[in-house]
Amino acid sequence: MELIISQILNAVMLACTYTLVGIGFSLFFGAMDIVVFCLGDVAIAGAFAIMALSTVMGVYASLSGILPAPISGIIVVFIGACFTAGLVTLMYRAVIVPFEGKNINASLLSTIAAGIVIRELIGLFYPEGRNPHAFPQLLPAGLIGDNVLLSWRNIIIIAITFIMVMLLYWFVNRTKTGLSIQAISQNKEAAIMVGINWHRIIVITFLIGGFLLGIGGFLTASYFNSLRFDMGAMYGLKGFCVAVVGGLGSIYGAIVGGLLIAFVEVFVTAFIPGGTAYSSVAAFLIVVLFILFKPEGILGEKTVEKV
């Protein structure tokens, strides 16, 4: 029983790290009908930025000289998330705008290539970039009770994910800009016809999605306690899987999909002998099955192919 509870907790944590990048995929797909394959790398680049701020550049140390530790932590993470927001907007300009309205294969390949470029640039230019790094612990480490998994760090990871999703929900459904994002994703032409500045809204969408990705990268690095330059490839792929399983374009879908994929992975690892090696295989098989038999995902709406 103890084991199951701690595994459930573990799966929820993993789901949290997947959800934010999954939301990124859904957000951009909703707004532009495009899958941006480099999101995982963007998120990990954000984690590297946060790590640089707190170690190499010493921003965190000098901040915590003046401010209490949690606040300087929040500031550092915020700067990192702003960095990813900028980075993903740059990606939009560099590898999405040139292919607007063309065959989707072009933007698909260009965003994959952009992911490689980000990854390799980190590997080449971050100090010791190709080696694994221990991620600086900005979250408090103390345990609550005697379960190893029930630590403040884990609770805060779940809480941050929850707050981010709530904020996004509020933004998308309650603000004019959020409603404009929805309007664009549902009917681009009509959105232009009511006078929505399409281009501005798209850039805002990318800024917001990028910010969430930065937080997601930070949570992932904190959860695994380590950071590698090429983590982004798998992280992004899992994020896309999560978005597809939940229903591409649906924010709640990303949460549900994240939970499903995370539970599959954690439980295959924990309860199948020799399952560690096959946890990713199981997750990918689930995605393939979903695409084959329920391509609209758990919460997505069925779309009829247009003739």
Binding site: L179, Q182, A183, Q186, N187, E189, A190, A191, M193
Partner: peptide
């Protein structure tokens, strides 16, 4: 403008 046919946002 009152658009032709589907000028609405169906899920809003």
């Amino acid at each position: 403008i009152v658009p032709e046919r589907e000028g609405l946002f169906p899920k809003l």
